[in-house]
Amino acid sequence: MKTAAVKRRDDRLLGYGLLVPVAVIVFVIIGIPFVNAIYLSFTDKVVGVTPKFIGLANYMAIFSDKEYWKVLKNTVVFTVGSVGVKLVLGLLLAVVVNQNFFGRGLLRAVLLVPWALSGMVSAVTWRWMYDDTYGIINALLLRWNIVHLPVAWTSDPSIALLSVIIVNIWKGLPFFIFSLLGGLQTIDGQMYEAATIDGAGKVRQFFAITIPSISPVIAITVLLSTIWTFNSFEIVYLITGGGPLHASAVISTYTYEVAFLQNKMGQSLAVAGSIIPILVALIIFSMRKLNKDD
């Protein structure tokens, strides 16, 4: 019989051992370029030229640029809007495809497809559909007399951001549905049986059993999706190019502009680096939620 102390030591060794491959990926393969990129954000880096350390100058430059703040605000709206809607619809649809009914398999397949498409293809397809003269959406809206003038989906500054949010929801919804479904499927059916015997209704069961059981999954799905959405590039860049006049620009497209159009690699890394504190705060917050039940 092993003593408790020996068991604890064994667990510790095993704990480290199992993490070695992950640690290599995190600290070596991505860690080195990551640290390098952060360092370069404090330099005047231009591609092909040796960088010179310039302290906080890049950060000062972007914080004093009012376009940066406009873009940051857009990014927050874009992220909160997309993730919020994806969570609500994702939860609803995950519950739906977790029920038993004829055609469930087909519905699951259908719902997965947007995720299976590459971002570039989704973006160019939507851009085409959005156009006001040769796009199908306006053609149908006009034909059905829902609108009398084509909607300027991508060029009206008050609609453009919404238009890219819609595409982001379309593309990212499967991630929510299927991650949450995976969580729902691990719930022990006996818990519902017991609750039913106790006389709890479906709605109460949903909030008393379903949500708490999958709350770690919800937290992590939201966290991952928030980070991805915050950094997502293709949809905005390929549909509106961030336009008109930065009305739909987000941090990642702005990063691209600074790096590749203005040719300031260091400053562009500072733009990307400047949002790290926001994301870190978010991570710490969700971790606390995640570890609460430990």
Partner: peptide, 22 residues
């Protein structure tokens, strides 16, 4: 370790690809 894993997502590929290529 738990936090480090997700911190790797903080910089988008759009700015990491050059250092990674190097």
């Amino acid at each position: 370790m738990l936090k480090s894993i997700i911190y790797t997502y903080l910089l988008p590929v759009a700015v990491l690809f050059i250092p990674m290529y190097v």
